[in-house]
Structure formats: structure tokens, C-alpha cells
Amino acid sequence: MIEFHLDSSSGVAAYMQIVHQVKRAMRLGLLRKDDQLPTVREVVAQLAINPNTVLKAYRHLEMEGLVAGRQGQGTFVLQTLAGPELAGHAELRTELLAWLDRATALGLDDEDIAALVASTLDERFRALQQEEDGAA
């Protein structure tokens, strides 16, 4: 079982934060196939948030095919994400370390690097969204 936490200053919608945290837990192997997500009531009791927010997050995860509700029991994880991806992690990590060394050699410190990564991810997200909007 995992616990959610919300950052109200992040600007990310609360339900999205829950979606991200479930996906992250799945990727890290904290949630595997047939594991149960916290019930709506448990999340509400813990975070004092709107139950509709939790329902919306779980519906979103259901639509992505990651979890499924079982009548009267709760919401369960449908697949294990961690396995094959963890294998790829090692290779990516090696490449990333080489890239980080280059960045450091160019005079970037950790904060510069973090800012560069964040802004690039952000730009990429926007570009992908625009593509989607264009397609739709």
C-alpha cells in the first residue's frame, strides 16, 4: 500500500498529482500487479481532500488501462511496470552520467542542470500537447 501526498503550490491539479504518484510507484516497483490502491475513503481521511478528486484520478488510471475497480473491493493494479524498464534504467543511467559530466565540464552546477532538465521537459510536454491538439 502506498500513501499519497499533495503539494498545493506545485500548480499541478490534485488529481494529476495522484495519477503521477501511482505511475511512479508502479515504475519503481512499489506497486505491482494485483496490489490494491488505497480506498477513496482512506485517501480522503489522510489528505482531507475532495473525494471526487480521488475518484477522478482513479478513473484516469482506469482509462489508461493501469488499474481496474473490482465491485465492492476497491481498485487494483493491472500490470507490473517495473520489470523491463528497470533493465533499461542501467543503460540510461550510464548515458546520463556521461551527459552530466559534460554539463559539469561546461561549467553548469547542479542547480543549472536541474533547471535545464525541468525547462526542457516542460517544452517537450508543451510541444507534445500542441501536436495532440493539432491532431484533435
Partner: peptide, 11 residues
């Protein structure tokens, strides 16, 4: 705590 009570009942 107040909001927890309220939201719990709404669930």
C-alpha cells in the same frame, strides 16, 4: 481535522 470529518462523511 474539520475538513477530514466533512469529507469523510461526503464519501
Amino acid at each position: 481535522e474539520f475538513m477530514q470529518t466533512l469529507m469523510d462523511d461526503v464519501v
